Amino acid sequence: MAQGTIRYWAAAKAAAGTDSEPYDAATLAEALDAARAAHGPDFARVIGVCSFVVDSDPVGTRDHAEVKLPEGGVVEVLPPFAGG
């Protein structure tokens, strides 16, 4: 297990009701499962469409169960956004 911080942006921040919270998990999948359990179905729907970055490394299409979380790391939760 590793401990670090999950940071939420935009709609994910609104759904979580906070801009950040700690994680205590070995993988991204474990951290996200704990966050879903803590914040409920609306939050789960929002993060279902999010992108994730772990310590500046985009997760992309990798299986979240295979993404190891580092001690003291930061997970960025980024909802889709429009620019222009």
Rank of each mutant, 00 (worst) to 15 (best):
79 P>A: 09
29 A>W: 06
44 A>N: 05
35 A>P: 13
76 E>S: 05
1 M>A: 12
18 T>S: 14
45 R>D: 15
46 V>K: 10
38 A>Y: 10
19 D>W: 10
67 V>A: 05
20 S>V: 00
24 D>M: 07
38 A>P: 11
19 D>K: 12
23 Y>G: 02
63 D>P: 12
67 V>G: 05
15 A>W: 15
76 E>Y: 06
34 A>Y: 05
9 W>Y: 15
81 F>T: 03
66 E>F: 01
14 A>R: 14
37 A>Q: 01
78 L>T: 09
47 I>K: 06
24 D>Q: 14
9 W>L: 15
46 V>G: 04
26 A>L: 05
77 V>D: 02
11 A>M: 06
80 P>N: 13
40 G>A: 01
2 A>M: 08
7 R>C: 08
64 H>T: 08
9 W>T: 11
39 H>D: 09
73 G>I: 00
69 L>M: 14
46 V>R: 07
53 V>C: 04
33 D>M: 09
36 R>S: 00
45 R>M: 10
17 G>S: 07
3 Q>C: 07
20 S>D: 07
83 G>C: 02
36 R>A: 01
34 A>V: 12
27 T>N: 06
48 G>H: 04
27 T>S: 10
24 D>N: 13
14 A>G: 09
84 G>I: 15
70 P>W: 00
24 D>H: 13
31 A>P: 01
30 E>P: 01
6 I>T: 04
30 E>A: 10
19 D>H: 11
52 F>N: 02
60 G>H: 04
42 D>Q: 04
66 E>S: 09
48 G>Y: 04
66 E>Y: 03
83 G>W: 04
31 A>M: 03
46 V>N: 05
76 E>A: 06
17 G>N: 06
5 T>C: 03
22 P>E: 13
57 D>S: 10
2 A>Q: 07
75 V>W: 07
15 A>L: 09
30 E>Y: 05
49 V>F: 08
52 F>E: 05
22 P>G: 10
13 K>T: 00
29 A>V: 03
62 R>N: 09
33 D>G: 05
53 V>L: 09
79 P>N: 09
33 D>V: 11
22 P>C: 00
53 V>T: 08
21 E>P: 00
61 T>W: 09
22 P>Q: 09
80 P>C: 10
25 A>F: 03
58 P>K: 06
33 D>I: 08
48 G>L: 00
62 R>S: 11
44 A>F: 08
80 P>E: 12
13 K>P: 00
6 I>V: 15
58 P>N: 05
10 A>H: 11
43 F>C: 00
44 A>Q: 07
53 V>I: 14
40 G>K: 01
70 P>Y: 00
71 E>Y: 08
43 F>R: 00
8 Y>L: 00
38 A>V: 14
54 V>R: 03
59 V>P: 01
68 K>N: 12
74 V>C: 14
75 V>Q: 02
80 P>A: 11
67 V>F: 08
58 P>T: 04
66 E>H: 02
16 A>S: 10
46 V>D: 08
38 A>R: 15
